[in-house]
Design a protein around this nucleic acid. Sequence first.
DNA 1: CATGAATGAGGATTCATTCAT
DNA 2: TATGAATGAATCCTCATTCAT
Lengths: 207, 207, 207, 207
Amino acid sequence: MKKQDPIQAQLIAARRSQILEAATKVFAEKGFHRATIKDVAKAADIADGTIYNYFENKTALLLGLLDRLNETPHREEHFSQASKMKLGDWVRGYIHERYETLGTQGFDIFQIMLSEILVNPELRELYSQQVIQPTYALAKRYFQKWMKEGSVKEIDPALTMRAISGMFLGVVMLRLMGDPELKTRWDEMPDVMAEIILNGLTEDSDG
Amino acid sequence: MKKQDPIQAQLIAARRSQILEAATKVFAEKGFHRATIKDVAKAADIADGTIYNYFENKTALLLGLLDRLNETPHREEHFSQASKMKLGDWVRGYIHERYETLGTQGFDIFQIMLSEILVNPELRELYSQQVIQPTYALAKRYFQKWMKEGSVKEIDPALTMRAISGMFLGVVMLRLMGDPELKTRWDEMPDVMAEIILNGLTEDSDG
Amino acid sequence: MKKQDPIQAQLIAARRSQILEAATKVFAEKGFHRATIKDVAKAADIADGTIYNYFENKTALLLGLLDRLNETPHREEHFSQASKMKLGDWVRGYIHERYETLGTQGFDIFQIMLSEILVNPELRELYSQQVIQPTYALAKRYFQKWMKEGSVKEIDPALTMRAISGMFLGVVMLRLMGDPELKTRWDEMPDVMAEIILNGLTEDSDG
Amino acid sequence: MKKQDPIQAQLIAARRSQILEAATKVFAEKGFHRATIKDVAKAADIADGTIYNYFENKTALLLGLLDRLNETPHREEHFSQASKMKLGDWVRGYIHERYETLGTQGFDIFQIMLSEILVNPELRELYSQQVIQPTYALAKRYFQKWMKEGSVKEIDPALTMRAISGMFLGVVMLRLMGDPELKTRWDEMPDVMAEIILNGLTEDSDG
DNA sequence: CATGAATGAGGATTCATTCAT
DNA sequence: TATGAATGAATCCTCATTCAT
């Protein structure tokens, strides 16, 4: 009431950012459960109680992180370029981009998030609604277009999408689980995955 | 004073089994963190303290479960049949089998396990050593054979294996995250996945 | 810079009133301990901090409420009519009036107040000084008059007064404790109490 | 299972007693809200957590105290002697006894209890069920007998009982509120109260 | 080995109060 | 004076683990 709403809103957003920043760092280091609110507060250089002025509880910090991850991605943009490219290039590009958004610290926090998602229904639901479903919806449109064009075989789009996004997710999981090969040769994965997705393992004529 | 080792050993093994059985049930129901030692003890119909005669601490229960999951699988057996079949049939069969070992409760406990693996380095290491690496080692042999035979293209085996097992893992993850489509149509997934792995999404002639 | 004292004083009084009004409502609804300063501030439509410009701390709000309850009562007035009436009528009237000042919300706030008085020495002292002692002092005068007139037996006035006001208080307590009979038939109590106080339970001749 | 049930039960009862003893002392000194579980644990010379093996939560300690107060009283016994005595003697005796059970520390703890009862519905309900209602039920029987005998006037028993027990309660309240007169002359109160209850304030002939 | 009562460190959360603006 | 964000002490309760019996 005292200050103008827009400025207020900015301050609030800034403080929330500051807290989420700290949370990202602390959670990535110690994991969600081992990290305490005090840890986060210290990292953000504020008092414990202040966190509760911006987040309902500890779990809400995770939800906040999720929201944040979601601000970045330009999924739609990438899909929209599909029509302009050869399918192969597009797939490689897509994988690349998807994996780039994870970037360094992204892995750590994605690891924490996945761990909690597996165990926390609320978070799971949110992730489903905010990340998975929208992606499927988007992908479906293009998939159908490709099928009509004949650049993609006539197969069940729903399950195929799940197999493919499963591959993305699973490869990340394997890396998160510490596979050294994946860590070292991470940059080669998009090509490998794209090749499998597009052409499979067998020579052209097999079945 | 001590009884004969073999009998002792059997008793100990039995008691461990009893406890792990209980742990499986309880963890699957409540998750690892929410489940208490008391819960497990009750489910096993023994005293809290007794558990500590067989497991060093709560985490050791998870490690125990992991060991246990590994007793079952007949990975080697399946691989050994590879030479006898057409590649396509073999892949479909393998996926089927892999997913069957999860069965009902398997999903719940795998969910818990994955969640912890992501966050607990010790567990992660164990999982890597006992499950992932052996699988890779095994798969690698056959992969190379297939390549020599020409039934599989010449591609990097290490990364390819990771992409494929990533797909297995990721699809399970997506189901664990609550995807309704995957729950309903789970039985159709092996065929879809096999088709992609073998032939990719594009018609034979594409690139 | 300061405005004239009288206006200042009025503003201050008004703001205090506004706050106490809100406190009454909030305390009655949630109880003293469960109610937060924020609750009161919201109800008063002011900022938390403002309350501290008018009251030293949370407890002072209760003291303020007590002061306020004391502005209302017309104890003296009622007593002053004693000489004009028959004793019986006067007693019945007094009880009626005393209970009327409680009125709906009165009960709730009295409940809170009593609860705190029992536990908070400062409040207890204030209640004693501002409510109990004045009442006794007043009552004593009339009591002695009635004794001289012979309309009341020669008994110890101090203890008798305590027994009688104890009855008033205790009956309210019983109602506050949720007695359904008292809630339903509350209006009949003054007559019952008056009858006991005046004539006791036994027929005229007993002892 | 290890030790015999009866011995077990005794140990448990003893520990509960030990804790309630400590709680009585601590609550009486600091009040319910100001007293911490740690305080009680220290007073009982046990660890904080141990309390929670015997009581669900802090409030349960109060409920436990209430139960305990209820073990003592010999209400029924006293009432059963009613037929043998003159009404006047009986009433005086009853008041005496009722007030004796409070004895020294009883006042402190009753004070805490009342304070909480006024504010805690659960406790209120329990007090109503375990103390108030049984007393009413018991009293009602005798009341009706006395009326038939003619030793008590024909008045509404329900409300009369409430007026009288209200007097008991209220006088205690006034004492708890610190009335010095009541503290000093407490022993005289039963006679004063009995006189009022039996004969009222007025000389025999009045109305 | 089995028991389960005792332990007590640990952590999320609340909220009265302060104070810079 | 009004504001309300920031503070951080305070506390209930949980639960893995120990150990005397």
